[in-house]
Write a protein that binds this DNA or RNA. Structure first.
Lengths: 156, 156
DNA sequence: AGAAATTTGTCCGTATGTATC
DNA sequence: AGATACATACGGACAAATTTC
């Protein structure tokens, strides 16, 4: 019985079913979905079909997947919620020059540069990230910056 | 808009586009091309078409592909001696998301992003480097997982 | 610390049905 | 009618990250 795709494709039916389970709490947010092999057995479809269903859920933002781990149900953010996110839209910091930047600026790799980062959003989702790099020409050509290794990110 | 293959078949133009990216360094030699599924999304064509395009590149020697691994860009550069042409003012390429970009875009670390780099100069010296990152998700905005590409099913 | 089992990622080949030029 | 392309689905195999023993 291969591929009678009249009404709804099977992967979409499966995606909807899984979405239901997440929304109903059958698969609570933060927990793992059944493995692809399990779902394959449960719905009696090929693995590719399961993966297609999960891909649809991932695109829609219902789940996130990690290699070797599994697929997690994600907590749905309420968009009407109060924007308690104090995420700055622009930030300034010092970073070490990667080889390419070093080459462009004609400095040694690791030289500290000023990085300005701007984030633009569309509908709450990040649309674009712009990073601007400049030399920190601090009044003289060279100075020893062997100490402070600017602590990069620290993202949870 | 399916199948307007006037001048060239789709897989040919896609193969040419990928070839361009390899030659321009958007896909640096030795690195993996995006997965078939990714290319499928990016060019919005069927998988078979992508496979046809890659097969053409493989036959032409631009890429090699390994089962279960992916397709690698290969280098066969023997352009004329004189360095590179004048430096491009803006270059486009794919890069893996670092932890911070991944967090911002809400994708997995390592997800390929499009990076556009612009260099501005003052008196010949590089003054500023601007890197802009975007998702390479084809230009489809948000959609819920029950509609992919609008073929409204009509009852038979 | 190391080996095995799980699980996801990717590619391969094939197949059917639909649609358009 | 034939070539091109699309969408869907199957099954198998290898690769790589993670977890478990």
């Amino acid at each position: 019985m291969p591929t009678p795709h009249y009404g709804q494709p099977r992967y979409r039916t499966i995606a909807d079913e899984l979405k239901e389970r997440i929304e109903r709490g059958v698969i609570p947010p933060g927990t793992l979905l059944p493995a692809e092999s399990t779902l394959t057995a449960e719905f009696r479809v090929a693995r590719g079909t399961i993966r297609q269903a999960i891909a649809a859920l991932r695109e829609a933002g219902f789940v996130t997947t990690e290699h070797g781990r599994g697929t997690y149900a994600r907590l749905l953010r309420n968009e009407a919620g109060p924007n308690k996110q104090s995420e700055p839209k622009a930030r300034l910091r010092q970073v070490a020059a990667d080889p390419e930047l070093a080459s462009l600026f004609d400095v040694e790799v690791g030289t500290m540069l000023i990085e300005q980062e701007r984030v633009t959003r569309a509908n709450g989702a990040v649309e674009k990230v712009v990073r601007t790099y400049r030399l920190l020409r601090a009044s003289q050509g060279e100075f020893d910056c062997s100490s402070s290794t600017s602590p990069p990110p620290s993202g949870p």
